[in-house]
Simulated scan of single mutants.
Amino acid sequence: MIVRRRAVTAVSAVSALLLAAGCSAGGGNTPRSGNSVSSSGSAPGASAPGSSASGQGAEQTPPATGSVRVVRTVAADLKSPWGLAPLPDGGLLVSDRDGGTITRIDDKSGRKTLLGTVPGVSAAGEGGLLGIALSPDYASDHLVYAYFTTDSDNRIARMLYDTKKPAGEQLGAPNTVFKGIPKGMIHNGGRIAFGPDRMLYAGTGESGDRGLSQDRKSLGGKILRMTPEGEPAPGNPFGNSVVYSYGHRNVQGLAWDDKQRLFASEFGQDTWDEVNAIKPSDNYGWPVAEGKSSDTRFHNPIAQWHTDEASPSGIAYAEGSLWMAGLRGQRLWRIPLKGTEASAPPQAFLKGSYGRLRTVVSAGGNKLWLTTSNTDGRGKPSKTDDRILELEVS
């Protein structure tokens, strides 16, 4: 059941986005750590048609191979970091999945300021305080959105980030804007992001119940699109529904390219992880298909990996490529793009150097922020601390 608070504000009609996305699977591995190094390799990728071919011939194609340089460790000794949101005036907000807290990191000094604990977070299994995102009107409203697991569901709430409290900067009480997303010990999804259209997108998992992915009435195994108030966004493909695409297993990465096309990463089960170009209303196959399929009912991924090479979570777009963080694969993948297709085989960096990699976001230009996730996926910490890295990529 979906419950929403607050009526939707007037929203202008939104033109259809050109979209592209991907999915992949994975589990937990014993994490490893290492020194700051750059490394590279490649693996086969599978291409699929994008949602639109218009203008692709005029688009520049990035080089087949790229590079990654670790500039520095921004912050260390973090506890189960999951979501990451750069602030417009500098600094980073990071969510602690297991502790349910949000902390501000000074991106110059690494100093940590605890802003508060989100009430009602249940961190059992793969659930907890997951993705975070800033309001598209953050400069004026200072609202922070969070996706988190409770005792009964996964939901999205927003909180006022007050930087002028007498007692110091802190988060206000959460106001739930959307709830009723299925929860489980596994496959809770959790990535949220505001798109170029100023709508809120959420990647969900099927919570271990495979049948939910093909059920368009269920919120599990979907990409959702809603207004900032939690109402179905104008132009959604299934009428008065927040469902945007379906047939997903566990979506934890969302990113748009410079042409406003959406891509998503997805955990597979035993065979193929995926990155997909997302097209509204399309069916991405799970549980009937995992990875590429000859079944024309399903939208094929633009790239796929064996699950021990990826188990992807966050993705970001920079320098003409998607950059995808791998958990079990313990590496950062580069997927160069031409339109909504991969223009060359994916390339791997940082293999095993920092253990499991969770979230990657753009830091502007050719810079990325990257978080590690050296917790075993069930809340058990490893001997390796978690950190935020600054990367320079090409």
Rank of each mutant, 00 (worst) to 15 (best):
G235I: 01
M226I: 00
A277P: 10
R378D: 02
I181M: 10
V3I: 15
G45F: 11
L262D: 07
S343Y: 00
G91C: 09
D282W: 05
P280S: 13
Q170L: 09
I105N: 01
K222C: 03
N283K: 00
G329N: 05
R216H: 10
K79Y: 15
G221Y: 01
N154C: 05
A64W: 03
G247C: 02
V251Y: 09
V288P: 01
G364P: 00
A85G: 08
T9M: 14
L370D: 00
G41N: 07
W333I: 05
G116T: 04
L114K: 05
R191M: 15
G379N: 06
R97E: 14
G329Q: 05
K179M: 14
S51Y: 13
V275K: 03
S12H: 13
A193W: 06
P86Q: 11
D385I: 02
S373N: 12
E274S: 05
D89A: 15
V275W: 04
P81K: 04
F238K: 08
R331D: 08
S15C: 13
T271C: 13
V118E: 00
Q269N: 14
G239W: 05
R4L: 15
D89M: 13
A139N: 12
I223A: 09
P381L: 04
F267H: 12
F349Q: 07
S265K: 07
E266K: 04
E266W: 01
G291K: 08
Q60I: 13
A344W: 01
K183D: 01
F194D: 03
A20T: 14
P31F: 03
T163S: 10
M185T: 14
R4V: 15
S241D: 08
T227S: 09
S51I: 13
R198E: 08
H248Q: 09
R72M: 11
V275F: 07
M185K: 13
S152F: 14
A53R: 11
W286D: 00
I278W: 08
L93K: 04
G190M: 07
R4C: 13
V71I: 12
P44A: 14
L18D: 14
V177G: 02
N188S: 00
Q56I: 15
K383N: 14
P280K: 12
S313M: 03
L368D: 06
R155L: 11
G205M: 04
L171Q: 08
G184L: 05
R210N: 15
T372W: 02
D98K: 15
A157K: 01
D89W: 10
S362I: 06
I2H: 09
A13Y: 09
L262F: 08
A76W: 12
G127V: 00
G83D: 11
K380L: 10
A85V: 09
W82C: 09
G184K: 06
A53H: 10
G352F: 01
F194Y: 12
K351V: 12
A233Y: 02
L224K: 09
R6M: 15
R378T: 05
G66H: 05
G83N: 11
V144C: 07
V74P: 02
G55F: 11
R191L: 14
W333N: 02
M1H: 10
P237F: 10
G221Q: 01
R387F: 15
T372R: 04
V11E: 12
N283G: 00
L19R: 11
A173L: 14
I315S: 01
L115W: 00
G128E: 01
D282A: 12
C23N: 14
A139W: 07
P345K: 12
G355M: 02
G120F: 03
Y138C: 12
